[in-house]
Write a protein that binds this DNA or RNA. Structure first.
Lengths: 134, 134
DNA sequence: CAAGTTAATAATAACCATTACTGTTAAAGT
DNA sequence: ACTTTAACAGTAATGGTTATTATTAACTTG
């Protein structure tokens, strides 16, 4: 009954994956598209979206959503994000899992498979800039 | 130079605010629109969006974004959310502010003005349902 | 390694939550 | 009541994302 679909290794997938892995920021699909086009000029934006979703569901990259827009993270280990309201930059935040919080959630009978902490405010650069302007 | 705009108290604003305050779930703009239309049948969806944004920026309600869609919360006090991947329900989570984490973020020179924790997984009902189906 | 199969692609249309626009309505001051 | 104009209803536009489809190119098989 089950028709098994063999996956194919395409240049597009390899290039898009590499672009994310080489990104030290947290690019959007559009930005990844622009970077990958330098390698494959005929690349289509739809392909970028599809491949990114696939890579994320395979656990090879991470999707993070900021202001209703998907960004992609080369890191898949446990960490969180700080988002600057001024410049929009997304910074990684290393913070341990809060056992106390997890226990409280699990006590309610919920099964948690993902935890996401987001901190909003001003990054050091923007905080400084706004301070000197005053 | 400054032209002061006097705000007007309209029935639309009052009804929309009341709908959110009476909501024990976390409705979307569309859902709030449907509920408020029972009171004001000629209400426009655009008005709902505008008023909700206004109420949120006044701190009278809270906007929470789940799956790239705005939901609205009658609570404005410090709390977080659990989102069920199965039924989409959003549940409140009471958890204290993690001082350790905050200190780490502030050590980087960031100024934090909002903290958002989201827990994803299965709510107790859906967890049970999926368990008995096996 | 040529031929056949079909997964993945490029290009484009559609989607949908949200925002912008515009003529009209109705709060609030005089 | 009259005037002013903030807010409204109705509708068009926006923008990130997803769906569709004919075509291309990985991989399989002979």
């Amino acid at each position: 009954m089950e028709v098994k679909k063999r996956k194919r290794n395409t240049r597009q997938k390899a290039v898009i994956f590499q672009v994310v892995k080489d990104s030290h920021d947290h690019p959007t699909a559009e930005e990844i598209y622009e970077r990958a086009k330098k390698e494959i000029p005929t690349l289509s934006l739809g392909t970028v979206y599809r491949v990114l979703k696939e890579l994320a569901s395979e656990g090879k990259i991470r999707e993070i959503i900021v202001n209703k827009q998907s960004h992609f993270d080369r890191r898949t280990d446990f960490h969180h994000h700080f988002i600057c309201r001024e410049c929009g930059k997304i910074e990684d935040i290393e913070t341990p899992l809060c056992r106390y919080t997890c226990r409280k959630v699990e006590q309610k009978g919920y099964i948690v498979d993902e935890i996401e902490y987001k901190f909003y405010g001003l990054c050091s650069k923007c905080a400084e800039k706004l301070d000197t302007n005053k």
